[in-house]
Design a protein around this nucleic acid. Structure first.
Lengths: 113, 113
DNA sequence: TTCCATAGTTCAGAAATTCGGAACTGTTGA
DNA sequence: TCAACAGTTCCGAATTTCTGAACTATGGAA
């Protein structure tokens, strides 16, 4: 298993952030991570209600989120703990993450999440 | 030539916006459109300095921007006039476009919206 | 009208990317 | 040592992107 790559704050690219958050499944995962109250493990975030994401796809979603700089992943025992990098990100791109999540929040089908 | 499709304001999806703006070439085009003083035609926006975008690619970029709801395109004689939908967009997704352009470091003098 | 130039779109095939089942790795506990 | 579990990697199929070439649309000139 390769070591997980996390970009340094200054290497985080806006296009990677936007690309990562242009997928509603990744946004759902990320926003659940951002709003706490969730374990942060992959499997805890796999169930979107309407469908269960295959675990290879889920693993890839986390990789995209991680390598874009949106989250940090850290192995803890048998599972992986994920957390957002929101505080850092907001320093580098003020208001960006919030306005994106707000934009998605205005959609009816996401309001129940 | 098919009629150009423009989504109604309420049909604009955040994932389409983020996807469209996850490509630096499209961002460059869009931000130059958002900046006053540019003709707004496709060919006027083709030259990015470091490379000239092939016109079929350019046409596709405009299609992505248009169908995501970021711009309006209107035929005027032999050429196409493009303009951003920033004022509408800011009403639907407050602060989103501005924070994205700021993140890219290309914050233009946005048309006062 | 007919011809030409210009602006942009559409087509089509190659290249690149995404998706997801199956196999694999790493960890814990028995 | 073995089994169970969490997640990753592999790889082939499906989808998407890219761009040169062909095409459409408009306006101007003769």
């Amino acid at each position: 298993m390769r070591p997980l790559f996390h970009p340094a704050l200054e290497d985080i690219r806006p296009e990677a952030i936007l690309y990562a958050l242009s997928d509603p499944e990744r946004v759902a995962i990320f926003s659940r991570l951002a709003t706490a109250g969730c374990g942060g493990t992959c499997s805890a975030l796999a169930d979107l209600g309407d469908r269960v994401i295959p675990k290879s796809s889920l693993s890839n979603h986390f990789k995209v989120l991680r390598e874009s700089g949106l989250i940090r992943s850290e192995r803890q025992g048998v599972e992986m703990r994920n957390q957002t990098r929101c505080p850092e990100l907001d320093e580098r791109f003020p208001g960006l993450i919030r306005s994106i999540l707000t934009a998605y929040g205005q959609l009816p089908q996401l309001e129940t999440n």
